[in-house]
Simulated assay, not measured.
Amino acid sequence: MPPKPNYRHQRSERSRSKQQKKQEKLQRREQDSANRKLRDEPQAPEQTPDETPPNA
């Protein structure tokens, strides 16, 4: 005879799986966002406070 189903355990496993999937998706989205920000950011030459811009 098969064992009795444990619905609470099954539900918690589904919930855990959903939460893990959401967390992975969030991390992936944050990483993609950070990559876009780095890619889209213009590469400006760095200036120290002592230097003045030319023609100023």
Rank of each mutant, 00 (worst) to 15 (best):
E30G: 05
K21G: 01
Q27I: 03
D40V: 03
P53H: 10
S33A: 15
D40F: 03
Q19V: 06
Q10V: 08
Y7T: 08
N6I: 01
E24R: 10
N35A: 13
Q23P: 01
R39M: 09
A44T: 15
K21W: 00
E13H: 00
P5T: 04
Q27M: 04
P45E: 04
K22H: 12
T52L: 14
Q10N: 09
R36A: 14
T52C: 13
Q27T: 12
Q20K: 03
E46P: 11
Q10L: 12
P45K: 06
P3A: 03
P53A: 13
E51K: 02
K25V: 02
T48F: 01
P3W: 02
E46I: 14
Y7D: 13
L26K: 09
Q23H: 05
T48A: 08
T52I: 11
E30Y: 04
M1V: 13
S17E: 03
K25P: 03
K25R: 05
Q43L: 14
P2R: 09
R39Q: 07
E41Y: 10
E51P: 01
P53N: 05
S15N: 07
E30H: 07
P3V: 01
D50M: 06
K22G: 00
A44E: 15
P3Q: 06
Q10R: 12
Q19R: 06
Q23G: 07
S15I: 04
K18V: 04
R28T: 12
K21H: 02
K4A: 09
N6P: 05
P45F: 05
M1E: 11
D40Y: 03
L26Q: 10
Q31S: 07
E41W: 10
Q27S: 01
A44R: 15
A44M: 15
P2F: 05
R28M: 11
A34S: 03
K18C: 04
K18R: 10
T52A: 12
